[in-house]
């Protein structure tokens, strides 16, 4: 696929973001996205299918997202394509969790 992921030789993508003493994960959600994806490797999806799924992110989105946002996109895409999860289930659960987090008046 001639997508934005195939970026060898592109210009103007900015300076290299060198971060001193970088943590392995920058937040809990990054760690969870990584580990959930890892737990599907081989058992649910060949690793190359996961790589391809992140490449299928629309180009504008691909170029404006962070690394683990692309992983999350790939995970959701494959889970929904293989009928393991639906977008409406995710939305519903998000609403439930948000409500549970809000202190009742």
């Amino acid at each position: 696929m001639n997508g934005p992921h195939d970026m060898g030789g592109m210009h103007n993508l900015g300076p290299i973001p060198i971060e001193e003493n970088e943590p392995v994960f920058h937040s809990e959600w990054e760690a969870k996205v990584f580990a959930m994806s890892f737990a599907t490797f081989g058992n649910y999806f060949p690793v190359d299918e996961t790589r391809h799924a992140s490449e299928r992110m629309p180009p504008g989105k691909y170029l404006s997202s962070r690394y683990y946002e692309r992983w999350l996109y790939a995970l959701e895409l494959l889970l929904t394509e293989h009928d393991l999860l639906t977008q409406s289930e995710i939305e519903e659960r998000m609403a439930q969790l948000a409500q549970a987090d809000t202190p009742s008046s």
């Binding site: 696929m1 001639n2 195939d6 060898g8 030789g9 190359d48 790589r51 391809h52 490449e55």
Partner: peptide, 9 residues
Amino acid sequence: PTYTRLPRY
């Protein structure tokens, strides 16, 4: 148009 590990460059 599908997956490939052959980069354009």
